[in-house]
């Protein structure tokens, strides 16, 4: 899975607490800034994708509201993989998987 990092100048925006002079006008947020918000630990449940069953249909990829699903090439076949750094555990991918390849399992935060 590729490394996701906020571009350096936007990191500065957060760290240096930019004010009126530096913030982009109209509150337009530049791309890739959401990499910084790792909301993966919000979830009560996580999807576990059975890559044997996955047909690479892209349903989960398109429906994921957090773009947490990524397609990986394994042995010449594209399969879905979930980036738990960003998955909020909404379960939409589970509902949309046509081959029931995704299992929705409870996570226990307190035992982290």
């Amino acid at each position: 899975m590729k490394k996701k990092e906020i571009p350096l100048d936007i990191q500065k925006w957060h760290i240096n607490k930019w004010g009126t002079e530096k913030l982009p006008i109209g509150g337009a947020v530049p791309f890739h800034s959401s990499y910084g918000y790792k909301t993966g630990n919000w979830s009560a449940r996580k999807p576990f994708i059975d890559q044997e069953k996955c047909t690479g249909c892209l349903n989960c990829f398109y429906y994921c509201p957090d773009s947490a699903i990524e397609m990986q090439e394994i042995e010449g076949k594209y399969v879905a993989e979930c980036d738990f750094n960003y998955c909020k555990g909404c379960g939409i991918c589970v509902q949309h998987c046509p081959v029931n390849a995704i299992e929705w399992t409870k996570v226990r935060w307190h035992t982290k």
């Binding site: 913030l23 509150g27 337009a28 947020v29 959401s34």
Partner: peptide, 28 residues
Amino acid sequence: ACCTFNPFAVGTFGSLVLQDNYMELKRQ
């Protein structure tokens, strides 16, 4: 540059801005 939808400068417009930056944007 960062104020317009176009394929070369993707961005988010009208996003949620709370106490942290809202007032700066209004002051702009």
